[in-house]
């Protein structure tokens, strides 16, 4: 997929966490360049401690940056963004139940977001929003502990979608879920990209997941990008020894998520039609 506009542009980003109580300062991210085009799903792969999460928090504007720049479609993320710009960057977390307030029903949570972002959220009703992520309106009255992990993750995605983000960060969104539910959530994310041109930065340690949804991939180790490129190329012909080691660690070397194939090939006809429409729409907007 050839990206049009660049949505996320990270240049020479470094993040150093200052040492506390005698522990030395640690460099979490070390001179990372990274970009995501409109409508792309880009993966960031690496083991824990590779700097993925620090990177995500910085892109979100809620983490520390030491040097370098981050640009999200004209917005420089930071802790004091105006509401409207804050809404433009959303995130889906790893722990589906933990990402919802246990004492707040799904419906009340959505109402809170609507009150906060009046202009931004009028585009869709709760029911339509939920049906878009494959849920029925029943869940509106439920509390988080009354729905399943997969449903909770769909709700999280719906909460992000409601704000019409320009960039969605997904931090291991499926690693806490059963394999079958995993595939459903991944299909949902891909569908949203295909249908609505959603741009996603997908953070994961799971090569199988990355292979099945990402167009391009960055491999991170100890805060640096050691390899990047189209997913297929990087994973079929890894150049860097670290990527090779990562691949070797996956049983069978080419694990795939059951029920998920390469992008677009498996999308139903309707989806593909909508896809071309939304591409046209995006093209129209940028023109």
């Amino acid at each position: 997929m050839v990206a049009g506009r660049t949505i996320l542009d990270v240049k020479a980003l470094s993040i150093v966490h200052p040492g506390r109580r005698g522990k030395p300062a640690s460099t979490a991210v070390d001179g990372v360049d990274l970009s995501v085009g409109a409508g792309e799903i880009v993966g960031v792969v690496g083991e824990s401690g590779s700097g993925k999460t620090s990177l995500a928090m910085a892109v979100l504007g809620l983490g520390r940056t030491t040097s370098g720049s981050i640009d999200v479609d004209g917005i420089v993320p930071g802790p004091r963004l105006p509401l409207d710009q804050r809404a433009a960057i959303q995130m889906v977390f790893q722990d589906p139940h933990g990402s919802l307030d246990p004492r707040q029903s799904i419906g009340r949570g959505l109402r809170e977001l609507r009150r906060l972002h009046k202009a931004r959220t009028g585009w869709i009703s709760d029911e339509d929003l939920l049906s878009r992520v494959g849920l029925s309106g029943d869940v509106l009255t439920r509390l988080p502990h009354q729905i399943s992990g997969g449903q909770a993750q769909r709700v999280s995605i719906a909460r992000a979608l409601l704000l019409r983000p320009t960039l969605l960060l997904a931090d291991e969104p499926t690693s806490a879920l059963d394999v079958s539910v995993q595939a459903q959530i991944l299909r949902l994310l891909k569908g949203l990209r295909d249908e609505e041109g959603l741009t996603i930065l997908f953070i994961s340690h799971d090569l199988a997941v990355v292979r099945s949804v990402c167009d391009r991939v960055y491999v991170m180790k100890s805060g640096r990008v050691v390899e990047s490129g189209r997913t297929g190329e990087v994973l079929e012909r890894p150049q860097h020894p670290y990527t090779q080691a990562l691949l070797a660690a996956v049983p069978g070397g080419d694990a795939r998520i059951p029920g998920l194939e390469a992008p677009a090939a498996e999308a139903p006809q309707v989806l593909r039609d909508e896809l071309s429409q939304s591409r046209l729409a995006t093209a129209g907007e940028t023109a």
Binding site: L60, L62, L81, L83, R86, A87, I89, Q90, M91, F93, Q94, D95, G98, S99, L100, D101, P102, R103, Q104, E112, L113, L116, H117, S156, R159, L163
Partner: peptide, 25 residues
């Protein structure tokens, strides 16, 4: 807990996170 991060991410003001979300919990 991630939901607090999620609320910050959605731009919910600090006082609302404290009184509207943490306090009930």
């Amino acid at each position: 807990r991630p939901f607090v991060l999620g609320l910050r991410c959605a731009g919910v003001p600090t006082w609302r996170i404290m009184l509207g979300h943490l306090l009930p919990n």
